[in-house]
């Protein structure tokens, strides 16, 4: 009986001669596509620039990021959580001393920003829409040279899993903030306001985004070759896989919602609107 091992060829196959640089067919055009392939890059650029613009502005404001006991609420903007500098209005106690004079958000946003910047989905998005490498499928690259993620600085995309670890820590903190949002100091103790719901949705979306991450899927079970020998990791991997298919959806929803949560807190904290208590 022949076996896979025994079937090894006696003589190594001779290589097929191939010369690169042969003449290609088709016209000398950047693309033959006639559909509106440019819509997706335009929308992506618009959305990401809007978020970066808003979050930068919000991070440098250094005010109206906390709705406290004076307003019978406990809402801390996710851009400023955990508020760990001495100049913070709230919570957690000063981990960073008074030498830190600028907005605490600058210190905090590095981690969520790094997580999203190295995220496999966002990489696809900004490579296409900002770097035009390529702008769309079957549309020529904008640059004559290309080395992908093989060299500095893009080789640092490989640190994504470490930002994922930090992302999980931030999710725990923002989940704590969502629980805190049920506190209504001086107004009955515990309740649910519109802001509470916004904070809960924010925490849920951030968890969904983190758990659907490709690195998470790999670390939890994807790196295993024999699932039958690792039933728990297989069970986790199997449940993360459907989430992973929706990673793009969770990436956009969580991005939008975290900004929306900051907007809401900012409006309530500045007195522009009142946060209605539902029950």
């Amino acid at each position: 009986m022949s076996t896979l091992e025994q079937r090894a060829p006696a003589v190594a196959p001779s290589p097929i001669p191939v010369h690169l640089g042969g003449v290609r067919g088709g016209p000398k055009a950047a693309t033959l596509r006639r559909d509106r392939w440019w819509v997706a890059p335009v929308l992506t650029v618009s959305a990401l620039l809007a978020f970066v613009g808003y979050s930068t502005w919000a991070a440098f404001q250094n005010r109206d990021y906390y709705v406290g006991a004076a307003m019978h609420r406990d809402y801390l903007s996710p851009f400023y959580s955990p508020c760990i500098t001495a100049n913070c209005q709230v919570k957690f106690g000063p981990v960073i001393g008074s030498w830190w004079q600028i907005s605490p958000a600058i210190l905090i946003l590095i981690f969520p920003l790094g997580f999203r910047l190295t995220c496999y989905y966002y990489r696809r998005s900004y490579y296409r829409s900002f770097l035009w490498a390529p702008p769309a499928c079957a549309v020529a690259d904008a640059r004559p040279r290309y080395s992908g993620e093989s060299r500095f600085p893009l080789i640092f995309q490989n640190v994504h899993r470490y930002f994922f670890y930090f992302g999980v820590i931030f999710n725990v903190i923002l989940t704590y903030d969502a629980v805190e949002a049920f506190r209504f100091p001086g107004d009955g103790g515990i309740g649910v306001g519109v802001g509470t719901l916004i904070f809960v949705v924010n925490a849920v979306l951030l968890w969904l985004y983190s758990l659907s991450c490709h690195s998470c899927r790999h670390l939890c079970g994807g790196q295993v070759n024999s699932f039958s020998s690792h039933p728990i990791r297989y069970a986790v991997w199997k449940r993360l896989t459907p989430l992973n298919r929706r990673h793009m959806l969770f990436a956009w929803m969580s991005l939008f919602w975290v900004a929306f949560t900051d907007v809401y807190v900012r409006l309530v904290a500045s007195g522009a609107i009142h946060d209605p208590k539902l029950f």
């Binding site: 490579y127 490498a133 499928c137």
Partner: peptide, 9 residues
């Protein structure tokens, strides 16, 4: 493998 920039085309 590192040349792939995962644009999913």
């Amino acid at each position: 493998l590192a040349y792939c920039n995962i644009t999913k085309c």
